[in-house]
Design a protein around this nucleic acid. Structure first.
Length: 422
RNA sequence: GCGACUAUGGUGUAACGGUUAACACUGGGGCUUGUGGAGCCCUCGAUCAGGGUUCGAUUCCCUGUAGUCGCCCCA
């Protein structure tokens, strides 16, 4: 070995040691349970996609500079998926005639972005994408936003812990139109709007005046002068009122919510942490009615959102919400007084494993006392020795490490629940 | 892509430009060969990399790398 290998993970990505992975899996389990209870089904796909999939709907510049893209040995350009929605649209379009719409689908997996890592942003992160496809605006939008609340509820978050801020792309478009904005200046204005929260009011007003004499936000505030704006605004406010009656009490209209992406065609929304120290978007999504049609055929309208593991993890930690991430630990440590006891102990363990026990057998030559210490250090709650004494008496003594209490059982009749942790 | 700050055993910290880089935890071993985590003893283990200044660099300077935080971007 000429040079020592680094133990650091690659830039911007994380290692998940068993405790870390268990915590992440616990988060996913909560989300998965909530979504499946609403009839949503899980799908998945390879993280490798053809680069054209992203080039089709966004600029080549973004694909080349902010994705992991390479050319394979067959001269195909390949991208590590930076998001799931194009993959979803591709999969749905491929089987559009055989899938039963409306589709309620979700997917949990990793995404890759080639960017400078910073707070809440890594080069690989996990995300859960939730989508409802095949229905136009209306009830589908409401259900999806109710799902946002359901997921927060499942984590034990209170209504005042977060806010759901809604806006409408058609409303923004109508307001920009009424203010006389066109083309590039619409884009510039939207970018500015997205940053309004971070800017002081004077700077914002100054920046707006450099783009347009008339601020579209003022048009939205006083919609009376523009019928198209008034209609879109009324529709959105009506939707928020409907959410209120369905128990989503923290939904509110926020005309500064834009979402960075072009494919949204209707409602857009973000769930924000109300903790002022963590003013981050926890969930984000919206309606995209024309994306599936990029693959040909009739358009399939869709609405959905995504939950990121980093921001959600920060939220859970900052609120001290419970997350039981230890369920996969072994529950029973079988000690072996002599090395010759191991084959018998393994056979005995096998009877427990067959009944869902999480159990392992000591393979070291440590003394029995050291084996108990070892079990305690590993956080395994139960210990039993399996050697000549047990074989002679036909009983095993199960010791609870936490209390030191022991209970004797016949070898042939050890309750399976002891080892399965329930 | 741009900028700021940071970098010492596995972890957390110390060391004025000057002895053998210190301490705690962790790890390994022992006291202790069929039932405990304590305690005591022993022990492994580090100056991110490369240049420069200097009699002498963990310390000062430069470059690189990595981390953190901003900007850009945000799917």
């Amino acid at each position: 070995m000429a040079e020592k290998l680094s133990t650091e993970p690659y830039k911007g990505v994380r290692d998940f040691y068993p405790d870390d992975w268990a915590r992440l899996q616990a988060m996913f389990a909560t989300i998965r349970k909530t979504l499946t209870s609403y009839g949503y089904e899980e799908y998945n796909a390879s993280p490798l996609e053809r680069a054209e999939l992203y080039e089709a709907k966004t600029s080549e510049e973004i694909v080349s500079e902010q994705t992991y893209t390479f050319t394979d040995r067959g001269e195909r350009r390949v991208t590590l998926r930076p998001e799931m929605t194009p993959t979803l649209a591709r999969m749905v379009a491929a089987r559009r005639r055989e899938l039963a719409v409306p589709l309620r689908w979700f997917s949990i997996g990793n995404r890759f972005r080639y960017e400078r890592p910073q707070k809440g942003r890594l080069r690989e992160f996990y995300q859960c994408d939730v989508d409802l496809l095949g229905l136009s605006e209306g009830e589908a939008d409401l259900e999806v936003i109710m799902l946002v609340k359901a997921v927060f509820d499942a984590f034990g978050a209170a209504t005042q812990d977060y806010r759901i801020r809604l806006n409408s792309r058609p409303l923004l478009a109508a307001a920009c139109d009424a203010a006389g904005l066109k083309g590039d200046s619409v884009r510039a204005y939207m970018r500015l709007l997205d940053k309004k929260d971070k800017m002081d009011p004077g700077a914002f007003a100054q920046a707006v005046s450099e783009i347009t004499p008339k601020d579209p936000l003022a048009v939205i505030a006083d919609a009376g002068s523009a019928p198209a704006v008034a209609a879109e605004k009324a529709k959105l406010l009506e939707r928020i009122a409907q959410l209120q009656t369905r128990g989503v009490l923290n939904a509110e209209f926020d005309p500064t919510i834009t979402r960075g992406f072009d494919y949204y065609t209707g409602v857009v929304f973000e769930a924000y942490d109300t903790n002022p120290d963590n003013p981050r978007a926890l969930f984000g999504g919206g309606r995209y009615d024309r994306l599936v049609a990029l693959f040909g055929g009739d358009p399939i309208p869709a609405v959905g959102f995504a939950i990121g593991d980093v921001t959600m993890g920060d939220f859970i930690a900052s609120r001290n919400l419970p997350l039981n991430g230890e369920t996969a630990r072994p529950q029973l440590y079988i000690g072996t007084p002599e090395a010759g006891d191991i084959p018998g102990a393994q056979a005995f363990a096998q009877t427990l494993r067959a009944r869902a026990g999480r159990v392992f057998v000591n393979l070291t030559e440590k003394s029995l006392g050291d084996q108990i210490k070892d079990a305690a250090r590993r956080g395994i709650p139960l210990f039993l020795a399996y050697g000549k004494d047990e074989l002679a008496t036909g009983t095993v003594r199960v010791k609870q490490l936490a209390t030191g209490q022991e209970e004797a059982f016949p070898i042939t009749d050890l309750p399976a629940h002891l080892a399965s942790g329930s």
